[in-house]
Write a protein that binds this DNA or RNA. Structure first.
Lengths: 197, 197
DNA sequence: ACAAACTACCTATCTCTATAGTTAGTGGCA
DNA sequence: TGCCACTAACTATAGAGATAGGTAGTTTGT
């Protein structure tokens, strides 16, 4: 059910078409809650059916049309209620740690490749998170800029600092993952010998 | 598909009944890959159907029977192949960070409650991970002890250190989560004032 | 003799998620 | 005029996972 609230969160910054949602999503909310197109479109429809969004058909070119979704009052209320309700606890489900616990079964080369891949993924992800964080700090993040327009300037600092706080948490997790993978590579070298196959 | 390999990992320590699997699971493999009963039993059946496990019916009491599952050679091969194959990347999906990014929408009291709940969950989880890590270090962990019996003593250190390595990664994540939640509580106090409602 | 707790093994249902498509219009360039 | 990248909006399907049950036998204590 978090997808619904992730979409509401995005749409509170401004009304958007489904296509805009699916594009903007990947550059902001997806950092905390990933979802593909094929989940976004049907969910937008369900949200409209449930009265959380309302859509207006906007002409596009000569024959084309597009649907612009705006959050309704009921949508804002639902979002607020979700924000005030206790969080669901996510259970650990990370294949990398599962594999790590049984690394004695892997070929030394495969173990190394695994950890390198994990480290590289998180290094890249970390760079993206840090870049995004920087656009929050200088307020150049496009969705954030649109969002702040609805608020009095006295509120800006508060809004921005919560978003930075969220990214700081993600950055901590990413850094911990990279450091762990690096310790893993040292461990594999120590336990399996340093010959590379 | 990781559940299948999580179950294989557990069953390589010794043959077990479905019930044993579902009990032991929660005390070891579930720390890296959680799954409920209702997933475990059907998956064991499918694994037997696919030839990764074989079962023998064992009498239990006067009329009762139970089914003991053992990993087949094909099962060991499948597990090794999975261990040597690249890991799947899990996408970020953590409701706590999603909420954190939009904390300006929450009531101050709810924001605090949220972060406290998150901190408490991870504090408890961290204690459990540290306790389990200690049973790996002193080799008193029951599943580990059974596992080591199949190996030459010269291999023991290697096997144990990979498991400790996996727990170290989980412990790092848990510590980062607790520290983040604590910083969040300080932030909420600063931004919302320190009156508790 | 009976209850309670535990062992054993599921089933049913619904939702969530991933993967891989499809259909159709737009705008610009060669 | 044809082609291509892009915008727009899905659909279809299968598999994973969560939640909430059910049924039957066993062991232990009173």
């Amino acid at each position: 059910m978090s997808l619904r609230y992730a979409l509401l969160a995005l749409l509170t910054s401004r009304p958007m078409t489904g296509y805009d949602v699916s594009k903007q999503f990947s550059q902001s909310v997806a950092h905390v809650w990933h979802a593909p197109d094929s989940q976004i479109y049907p969910e937008l429809n369900r949200m409209e059916r449930d009265g959380l969004l309302e859509s207006t058909v906007v002409p596009w070119g000569k024959k084309g049309t597009k649907k612009e979704y705006a959050v309704t009052e009921a949508g804002v209320k639902a979002f607020r209620e979700w924000m005030d309700s206790p969080i669901e606890i996510r259970r650990q489900r990370e294949p990398a740690y599962l594999k790590a616990a049984y690394l004695e079964w892997a070929e030394p080369g495969a173990a190394r490749a695994e950890l390198e891949q994990f480290r590289d993924y998180w290094t890249e992800h970390l760079a993206m998170l840090e870049a995004t964080r920087a656009t929050l700090v200088d307020r150049s993040h496009p969705t954030l800029a649109r969002r702040l327009e609805h608020y009095d300037a006295s509120q800006w600092d508060r809004i921005v600092r919560y978003k930075i706080f969220a990214y700081d948490g993600l950055i901590d997790q990413a850094r911990a993952a990279v450091a762990w993978a690096e310790r893993g590579l040292v461990l594999v070298d120590e336990l399996e010998g340093s010959t590379v196959d």
